[in-house]
Nucleic acid binder design. Structure first.
Length: 293
DNA sequence: GCACAGGTAGATT
DNA sequence: AATCTACCTGTG
C-alpha cells in the first residue's frame, strides 16, 4: 500500500458534533471493523471509500486519497455518519433522567453516533464476529479484503462482495482464520448468489420482517441480525443483546434471571424507539469500565 | 495446558 | 420450551 497518496488535511465543515471519546467510540468501538489508528488520525474503509479522519479541538478534519472525488467522498461520509439523523435530540429523548446508568454512559460518550454502513458489508463483518474479540474481527476482515476484495484508491482493498466469496469457496475462508464461521459465510454467499435482489429487499423491508429474513441465513441468529439492522440499516429501535449488554442489564438494572426475550421486552419498554442507540451508549460505557458489567 | 471470547444450530432433556 | 454442546482459533 502506498503511504503518500493522501491529500492535505481539510476541515469537515458539516461534521457532526463529537467529543474525542464519542468520535473514537463511534468509528472504532465495535460498530465497524475497518478503522485503524495511525499516529494521531484514523484511517477507515467502507464500500469503495477510503478516508482519514482526525479529531482536533472539537472539529473533525479529513484527508482523502489524492485520486478520489472530494464532492462524492463528502456525500458518502455524510451518509456513513448518518448526518441526517439528529442524534443530539435522540440522546435527549432517552430516559437518562431516571436512569443513572444510562446517564453515566451519556456523560462519558455524549455525541456518540450509530453509523449507517453498507448493508451487505455489515452482514459479512458480523458473521465474522461470533465469540471473537474486536481486534480479531478486524484482523479477519482485513484478511478477507486482501484475499478477495477489489483494490481501492490507495491500493488497499475493499471488503469482498458476496459474489467473490461464493466463487472463492470455503477452504479459502478457512485460511482467513474464520474457523467454524467459514461454513456459515460460504453457505450465506451461495444463498445470496441464488437469490439476486434478496439483500436489497431485506434492507428495505419493515424491521420485524427484515429480521425474520436475515435469520434465515446460516449463522445469523437474533444478535447478528440485530447488529446488521442497527449498524447497517439505521434501525435505531433494534436492541442487540450480546454478552456485554446481557451483563449490564442483569447487574446494573438488576434483572437477574431474565431470559433474552424478557430482556428484549424490558429494553423496548424502558429505552423506547431509540433503544438501539441507548444500547450503544451502554456498551461503550461498560467496555470502558464506567459502569459495572 | 486451559479458560474464554460482541453466537448459532442441532441435540437432548 | 428450556438447557446443553460442538464448532475454530487466537489470546491471556
Amino acid at each position: 500500500m502506498k503511504q503518500d497518496t493522501f491529500g492535505a488535511w481539510k476541515s469537515w465543515e458539516q461534521a457532526p458534533e463529537f467529543t474525542h471519546n464519542s468520535f473514537v467510540e463511534t468509528i472504532d468501538g465495535g460498530q465497524a471493523f475497518r478503522w485503524k489508528q495511525i499516529a494521531n488520525f484514523y484511517e477507515g474503509r467502507w464500500g469503495y471509500n477510503v478516508v482519514r479522519l482526525r479529531y482536533n479541538n472539537g472539529a473533525i478534519e479529513y484527508s482523502l486519497p489524492s485520486e478520489s472525488d472530494s464532492i462524492d467522498s463528502l456525500k458518502n461520509l455524510r451518509k456513513y455518519f448518518a448526518c441526517d439523523t439528529d442524534f443530539s435530540s435522540l440522546t435527549n429523548s432517552l430516559p437518562w433522567r431516571n436512569d443513572p446508568t444510562l446517564a453515566t454512559a451519556i456523560e462519558n460518550f455524549n455525541g456518540l453516533r450509530i453509523l449507517r454502513q453498507p448493508f451487505a458489508e455489515t452482514l459479512l463483518c458480523f458473521l465474522c464476529s461470533s465469540t471473537k474479540q474486536i481486534p480479531q474481527i478486524k484482523a479477519i476482515c482485513e484478511t478477507l479484503a486482501l484475499d478477495l476484495g477489489n483494490p481501492l484508491a490507495d491500493e488497499s482493498h475493499a471488503l469482498p462482495a458476496w459474489g467473490s466469496i461464493a466463487r472463492a469457496g470455503e477452504s479459502t475462508l478457512r485460511c482467513a482464520k474464520l474457523g467454524y464461521r467459514a461454513r456459515y459465510i460460504y453457505q450465506t454467499a451461495l444463498f445470496l448468489e441464488e437469490h439476486p435482489g434478496w439483500l436489497e429487499e431485506t434492507e428495505a423491508a419493515p424491521t420485524h420482517q427484515a429480521r425474520t429474513l436475515l435469520m434465515k441465513l446460516p449463522g445469523v441468529g437474533r444478535k447478528i441480525a440485530d447488529c446488521v439492522l442497527l449498524f447497517g440499516a439505521g434501525r435505531l429501535e433494534v436492541f442487540p443483546i450480546d454478552t456485554w449488554v446481557e451483563k449490564i442489564l442483569t447487574r446494573a438494572y438488576q434483572l437477574e434471571g431474565f431470559k433474552k426475550p424478557q430482556l428484549q421486552d424490558f429494553a423496548r419498554v424502558h429505552f423506547g424507539t431509540s433503544a438501539g442507540y441507548a444500547q450503544q451508549y451502554l456498551f461503550a460505557a461498560a467496555r470502558a469500565g464506567y459502569i459495572p458489567s
